[in-house]
């Protein structure tokens, strides 16, 4: 089990909403990230808190409508400051922990409160153009997949450097 967990989530039947799962597959095939555990799912659910238990770094990959199509942004989650019921940002914003779906912040809080896990956590968001029913990504979003893998690789490299584990992937 790796100390790095990458979770790509979204609905692959909703066009660009599938960028999280598809990017996770790119990450899984990337030799720079061979040591990472990669999880692909439809949405964030409480059980993922269990997967986060042994991780020192968690990277969530999601779609966002608040950035231009194909734009890749990185946001650090609150970690120890995460509060119950808050789902700020693009990862589950506005839904709250009231259904089988939980937001990224709430998931981090669950992992901390239940398992004592305190991983560094980031959301890599990809701006989307089309969320209508359909398979496949629009061209701008598909072109961003290598940039998503690069962003994840940089986060992992920085994590390794902080942990003193060597230079990590370039």
């Amino acid at each position: 089990m790796s100390d790095v967990l990458v979770v790509g989530y979204g609905n692959t039947l909703r066009s660009d909403d599938g960028v999280g799962p598809l990017a996770a597959h790119v990450v899984a095939a990337d030799p720079r990230l061979a040591q990472a555990d990669v999880l692909v799912c439809h949405q964030l659910t409480p059980e993922i808190a269990l997967d986060m238990r042994g991780a020192a770094l968690v990277v969530l990959i999601d779609a966002t409508t608040t950035a231009p199509p194909g734009a890749v942004t990185i946001r650090e989650l609150g970690g120890a400051g995460a509060t119950a019921g808050t789902t700020a940002g693009g990862a589950g914003a506005g839904r709250g922990p009231t259904t089988h779906h939980v937001g990224a912040e709430a998931l981090l809080a669950l992992s901390r409160d239940l398992y004592g896990a305190a991983p560094a956590a980031f959301v890599v968001s990809v701006g989307v153009a089309d969320l209508d029913p359909g398979e496949g990504l629009t061209s701008a979003v598909e072109a961003a997949l290598p940039a998503v893998a690069d962003a994840v690789a940089r986060l992992v490299a920085a994590h390794r450097a902080r942990a003193g584990g060597g230079p990590g992937p370039a």
């Binding site: 059980e47 009231t98 939980v102 709430a106 409160d113």
Partner: peptide, 26 residues
């Protein structure tokens, strides 16, 4: 209060109950 009455609230109040639910579902 609905702000507390949710799974994160359960995790803080009764962590074993929350862990059991997660473990069973997993």
């Amino acid at each position: 209060d609905p702000a507390v009455r949710n799974i994160v609230g359960v995790a803080r109040h009764s962590p074993q109950l929350a862990r059991d639910g997660i473990a069973l579902r997993k």
